[in-house]
Computed example of a mutant assay.
Amino acid sequence: MINYGRFRSILAERHDQVLVLTLNRPDRLNAVGDDMHEGLEAILADLHNDSDIRAVVLQGAGRAFCVGGDVKGFAEAPVVEKTPYQTMEMVTRSAANLIDRFLDVPQPIISAVHGYAMGLGATLALLCDVVLVAEDAQIADTHVPVGLVAGDGGALAWPLAMPLGAAKYYLMTGERISGTEAVRLGLALKTLPLTELQEQALSMAQRMAALPPLALQGTKKTLNRILRHRSQLVTEIGLQLEAATFLSADHKEAAGSFVEKRQPVFHGR
């Protein structure tokens, strides 16, 4: 049996044929750091070869689903000299791998979103097959405000869920969307009271797990061809541009001002 609980920052709990994955860095509002990125990649790859699991729930511990990349961690991390090529290769490879893993998983994945789902956190939620949100949910792609191109999945997921004009606005500004508004725009299936969110997500996963798996998984695979086609169109260029902005002075200013709790000043460099 696969040990899904081998990562520090992801809790794994089995309910018969349903696997519940909980992002578990509540002190950082489940920011993607420590071994979370690596763990998600590995677990999603494992699921591809595990016929005993027929549905998955992805949720967050504590007060948030996931606030995205660990901006504070970026600023606190020791300086490691990398060439521009090494930086771009690292960013594009890891993000592309994670997107591919989501698209490869045969089982349906339900995200149960409460509190903040920001940046990469929003992408993790929206790459799931069904998105349920609590009434307190706040969803945003916050790449641009921290000086980065929204390239790690936002340009893939958001325009498929809402009109292109609306997706452009929210991706370019990083403005937050409430749980109710997320349902109205098509980002989420339904809004639930926070106290019912995880129970309802598990119940939905159990209902899906009871369906004929070949039919269910074949339907998902067919529909994911749409995502794959769109991914071929936008993901490579988006990740390359995001990687380039990791090297920008504006991104360094955004990370520094976040830690120092001051207003950033950007110069387009």
Results as ranks from 00 to 15, higher is better:
residue 178 S to Y: 11
residue 97 N to I: 07
residue 69 G to V: 01
residue 72 K to R: 15
residue 86 Q to Y: 09
residue 141 D to G: 00
residue 94 S to K: 10
residue 79 V to T: 11
residue 145 P to G: 08
residue 109 I to Q: 08
residue 20 V to D: 01
residue 226 I to H: 14
residue 85 Y to E: 14
residue 33 G to K: 03
residue 99 I to G: 00
residue 88 M to E: 13
residue 185 L to S: 07
residue 59 Q to N: 11
residue 160 L to Q: 15
residue 182 A to Y: 02
residue 218 G to Q: 10
residue 154 G to M: 05
residue 37 H to M: 13
residue 146 V to D: 02
residue 176 R to S: 15
residue 99 I to Y: 05
residue 34 D to S: 12
residue 11 L to F: 08
residue 26 P to T: 06
residue 178 S to M: 11
residue 222 T to S: 14
residue 177 I to A: 01
residue 108 P to E: 03
residue 175 E to P: 04
residue 22 T to W: 00
residue 207 R to K: 14
residue 16 D to K: 14
residue 149 V to D: 04
residue 140 A to F: 04
residue 21 L to C: 05
residue 108 P to A: 03
residue 61 A to C: 04
residue 150 A to G: 09
residue 95 A to W: 02
residue 168 K to L: 09
residue 216 L to G: 08
residue 90 M to G: 11
residue 107 Q to E: 14
residue 264 P to K: 08
residue 12 A to G: 09
residue 121 G to P: 14
residue 175 E to R: 15
residue 3 N to H: 11
residue 51 S to P: 04
residue 259 V to C: 07
residue 225 R to G: 07
residue 104 D to M: 10
residue 60 G to A: 10
residue 188 A to V: 01
residue 41 E to M: 08
residue 100 D to V: 00
residue 215 A to R: 12
residue 52 D to S: 15
residue 197 L to G: 04
residue 95 A to K: 11
residue 35 D to M: 07
residue 265 V to D: 13
residue 242 E to A: 06
residue 175 E to Y: 09
residue 29 L to E: 08
residue 157 A to E: 11
residue 210 A to V: 02
residue 93 R to P: 11
residue 254 A to N: 10
residue 9 S to D: 14
residue 233 L to S: 07
residue 192 L to T: 05
residue 197 L to H: 06
residue 207 R to W: 06
residue 228 R to W: 13
residue 171 L to F: 02
residue 150 A to T: 00
residue 66 C to R: 09
residue 36 M to Y: 06
residue 187 L to R: 11
residue 235 T to V: 15
residue 204 M to N: 04
residue 96 A to Q: 13
residue 59 Q to C: 13
residue 233 L to N: 09
residue 38 E to T: 10
residue 157 A to N: 12
residue 56 V to T: 01
residue 40 L to D: 04
residue 26 P to W: 05
residue 71 V to W: 02
residue 215 A to I: 07
residue 20 V to L: 09
residue 6 R to V: 04
residue 84 P to N: 12
residue 200 Q to R: 13
residue 265 V to S: 15
residue 73 G to Y: 06
residue 217 Q to T: 10
residue 80 V to W: 14
